[in-house]
Amino acid sequence: MEIPVQQLAPLLKSRRKDLKIKQEDLSETTGVALRTIRDLEKGLGNPSLHTLEKVMQVLGIELIFRLRK
């Protein structure tokens, strides 16, 4: 499954800034590499669902998949 990283990037970045947490701290808290965090915020890379979920969880965002109507 391809994750729409480009569409998620602005949300991740603005949410992190709203919470006033640095990329380095987000990396340490999630256990996700700093480079991956940076790529995610630029809409780059092809992260696994597990990686994305770890970042989203710390940022307080739920990933929900629904059947298309």
Binding site: L19, I21, T29, V58, L59, G60, I61
Partner: peptide, 10 residues
């Protein structure tokens, strides 16, 4: 009350 609870707890 805090969705980003781990950041909140730190």
């Amino acid at each position: 009350n805090v969705a980003a609870s781990l950041i909140g707890k730190e």
